[in-house]
Design a protein around this nucleic acid. Structure first.
Lengths: 204, 204
DNA sequence: TTTTTGTTTAAACACACGTTTAAAAACAAT
DNA sequence: ATTGTTTTTAAACGTGTGTTTAAACAAAAA
């Protein structure tokens, strides 16, 4: 298991795991050092502080996360298929990293720093020309006329929340992990059908 | 402003405000004591520890939250109207307490204790006979045949997430608080229409 | 070999935390 | 007034935190 990774990446890997699952306040520097198999002092030797390490981690997570979306958006397919694939990929991504939505929403809410601006994410989105594509589909009548904020919310609500609420729903319904995962796969179909029907009324 | 409340309720009020906004790990006993205008030691005089105080607060929040739902469910109206009113009331409740969804999902995920069982919430739900009502509507064909977990997820996703993601979406789209609140009211209409159309196909 | 440079460590620092103690203050009963 | 009880406080305790220090270690340069 123990590869010959550089100390810096060992620390970053450990920090990412622990920060994502426990949050900034929910873990300690020593915990991260242990997970990385190094001394605490090395943390501040490679990164100046716990806070700076955290900023690096949250930036990288945010980048990975948005890239997986942009990757779909810049593909050459119809808007309706983009929505379909986006939901599919989103459920796929979140199945592997279910703690990320909670992590982003919680930790980003505390920070005053605008990581999206720092990472030029807005620009990356513009390059995909998705905004113009939506506008065109709305004027042609193919797509329902709703604003981009609501469109974003509809997509994210129905993709992210089922993963965020997993512990709660599991408790309420006394479900095992595997059972809930099955539910998720079924739910993905419902969500896809519902959103496609609503956003593209002609296609129902 | 300073009413003649008992010390115990002053502490509970302060604790509720601070726990909900900052979480258990995101605040200190002294912070709560300050907000309540009392000494730190009094916290452990009235409640044995920070943890016990937290359990009391999260129980009360959970109770308030579910009661607002049950209140609608036990009303005497058609299922389709219950869904409509439920969304309406949910957006109304969350407009007043927007931090609660995040609070519940985050803090409940950490605890191993099952607060829902402790508070007899399941029983309260059963009393409303909503489960039978859904089953009847599904066999009669009025309602789409989806499982209760997915039904719950659809409702919660589209009601809670828009409030949970408020800081993030505001940042991404450079929106002021008032602007986002306007978006929320519009979004509520979209969500209502989408869910009603999907859950009750005949009515579209 | 010696020196130099970059890594890693054990130990300590200063401080904030949750909690406890002992005494003061406020109040009630006799 | 005196006693007893409850409420409140200032101060301290022990522990865990993020961070720093100074020394040990390793690898390369001289």
């Amino acid at each position: 298991m123990e590869r010959d990774l550089s100390t810096e990446t060992k620390i970053k890997d450990a920090a990412k795991r622990i920060f994502i699952t426990n949050g900034f306040n929910g873990c300690t520097s020593r915990e991260i050092a242990n997970e990385a198999g190094i001394n605490v002092a090395l943390l501040n030797y490679y990164f100046k502080s716990k806070g700076q390490l955290f900023d690096i981690i949250i930036s990288s997570v945010l980048k990975d996360f948005t890239l997986s979306i942009i990757d779909v958006l810049k593909n050459n397919m119809s808007l309706i298929n983009k929505v379909r694939i986006l939901i599919e990929k989103e459920y796929e991504f979140l199945s592997k990293h279910p703690e990320i939505p909670n992590f982003i929403i919680n930790e980003l809410g505390k920070k005053d720093k605008n990581f999206f601006e720092c990472l030029d994410i807005a620009e990356e989105f513009h390059k995909t020309k998705i905004f113009q594509e939506v506008l065109d589909a709305q004027t042609s009548g193919e797509m329902r006329k709703i604003d981009l904020v609501s469109l974003m919310l509809l997509m994210m609500s129905n993709c992210h929340f089922p993963f965020m609420a997993k512990p709660m729903i599991k408790t309420i319904n006394s479900l095992e992990d595997a059972q809930y995962n099955e539910h998720l796969m079924v739910h993905k179909q419902y969500v896809t059908e519902m959103l496609i029907n609503y956003l593209f009324p002609k296609n129902s």
